Computed example of a mutant assay.
Amino acid sequence: MADVAAKVGVSRALVSLIFRDQPGASKETRDRVFAAAEELGYHPDNAARLLARGRSRTLGVVLTVHQPFQADLVEGIYPEAERLGYDVLLSASAPGRDEAKSVEALLSHRCEALILLGPTSDYRYLDELGHRTVVAVIGRRLPGARVDSVHTADTKGVRQAIDYLVELGHREIVHIDGGKDPGSADRRRAYRAAMRRHKLADRVIPGAHNEDAGMAAGRLLLEEKQLPTAVFASNDRCAIGLMHTLGRAGLDTPKDLSVVGYDDSHLSHFSHIDLTTVRQDADSLAEHAVRAAITRLDDSTVAPGEMVLDPKLVVRGTTGPPGERPTKVGKNLS
């Protein structure tokens, strides 16, 4: 700013007024200042100006690497944050970099609030974090914790999936769960409740929200004498891993086995996957989380809340009526 002032022959204070769009300078002087700034390649440091006022107007977002649905959430966070006058800073957790480290990196960059996408940290840590700063969590219920929680009604979504499979004629429906991943416990309970309601036997195969878990479950099923007629996976990545293993063994989805996922991530839309899945509205989840965080930044008396959005079953090509199941299901392929 001092360089611009020296080039134009005015005071630094006047240049500051002009860049803040304050009165006190003629149009001619303003034009000369902007021309000099462009020539020198100078741009006002909005972040520094905000920090001088005690604000950064930046939201920090913690995500997990390789989770497509979280990428969909990030796409929804940016436009809503920008609409409300905030920037977004991302920090990823990955093997060797846990959520706590990702959080501290964002706080060190003076993010005013945090949005955590499917956090796996324990309840106590998240509650304590909520007492340090404004926190909104997407994809996990945290009753009583000092954080805003935005999630889908998993019980409704799972019930839709199981009801649909039963209507198609399926009676042997296996669930690959998500282990300790966010939402997994609720989906597992909802699956068992739905199966009981239909007076059907339940079976849960331990898994996780990734392709490896789906592939491992597929290998397990291929070793058995007979396949179930349908599988409900706890998320789309797990479902895709299962379909990969079944396809390598020469089986057809849905002729030999119907498969349902959960999330409706962008991968499930591809024609070669065409996955029947329970849709979580990523844009709405993102928008609600951003608004919840900013509402509490603007008014510290507002208490954290819980927002629950309705899911929707999206029927595609991986489900159909039960077919003639092969008694010899094939090789154990990875």
Score class of each variant (00 low, 15 high):
residue 2 A to D: 03
residue 13 A to P: 01
residue 16 S to G: 12
residue 17 L to P: 06
residue 19 F to Y: 13
residue 29 T to N: 08
residue 33 V to C: 10
residue 42 Y to E: 12
residue 47 A to I: 00
residue 47 A to H: 04
residue 48 A to N: 05
residue 48 A to E: 03
residue 50 L to W: 03
residue 50 L to Y: 07
residue 59 L to S: 08
residue 59 L to A: 08
residue 60 G to T: 11
residue 61 V to H: 01
residue 65 V to P: 01
residue 67 Q to G: 02
residue 69 F to N: 09
residue 72 D to F: 07
residue 73 L to C: 03
residue 78 Y to S: 03
residue 80 E to C: 13
residue 84 L to V: 00
residue 90 L to D: 06
residue 92 A to P: 12
residue 92 A to S: 14
residue 95 P to L: 02
residue 95 P to A: 02
residue 98 D to C: 02
residue 98 D to W: 02
residue 100 A to E: 04
residue 100 A to N: 03
residue 101 K to T: 13
residue 103 V to F: 00
residue 105 A to Y: 05
residue 108 S to D: 13
residue 113 A to Q: 09
residue 114 L to E: 07
residue 121 S to Q: 11
residue 124 R to Q: 10
residue 124 R to G: 02
residue 125 Y to T: 03
residue 126 L to F: 04
residue 127 D to P: 07
residue 129 L to R: 00
residue 134 V to D: 03
residue 138 I to D: 01
residue 138 I to G: 09
residue 140 R to T: 01
residue 140 R to F: 00
residue 141 R to W: 01
residue 143 P to D: 01
residue 148 D to I: 06
residue 149 S to T: 05
residue 153 A to Q: 02
residue 153 A to D: 14
residue 154 D to N: 15
residue 159 R to V: 00
residue 161 A to T: 06
residue 169 G to N: 10
residue 171 R to N: 01
residue 174 V to S: 14
residue 176 I to R: 09
residue 180 K to A: 05
residue 183 G to T: 03
residue 185 A to P: 06
residue 185 A to L: 13
residue 189 R to Q: 04
residue 191 Y to C: 09
residue 192 R to V: 01
residue 193 A to H: 00
residue 195 M to P: 02
residue 197 R to N: 00
residue 201 A to N: 14
residue 201 A to H: 09
residue 203 R to A: 07
residue 204 V to Y: 05
residue 208 A to V: 09
residue 211 E to F: 07
residue 212 D to C: 05
residue 217 A to D: 01
residue 225 K to P: 11
residue 229 T to P: 06
residue 230 A to T: 05
residue 230 A to N: 02
residue 232 F to D: 12
residue 234 S to E: 03
residue 237 R to L: 13
residue 240 I to K: 09
residue 241 G to V: 14
residue 244 H to T: 06
residue 248 R to F: 06
residue 251 L to C: 13
residue 255 K to D: 15
residue 255 K to C: 11
residue 258 S to M: 10
residue 264 D to Y: 05
residue 269 H to A: 13
residue 284 S to D: 11
residue 287 E to K: 15
residue 287 E to S: 15
residue 290 V to W: 10
residue 291 R to D: 10
residue 292 A to W: 00
residue 295 T to G: 12
residue 295 T to W: 01
residue 295 T to Q: 15
residue 300 S to N: 14
residue 300 S to T: 14
residue 301 T to G: 09
residue 302 V to H: 04
residue 306 E to Q: 13
residue 312 K to D: 11
residue 312 K to T: 15
residue 314 V to W: 07
residue 315 V to N: 05
residue 315 V to Y: 03
residue 317 G to K: 08
residue 318 T to R: 02
residue 319 T to V: 08
residue 320 G to K: 08
residue 321 P to D: 04
residue 325 R to G: 13
residue 325 R to C: 08
residue 327 T to N: 00
residue 328 K to N: 10
residue 331 K to R: 10
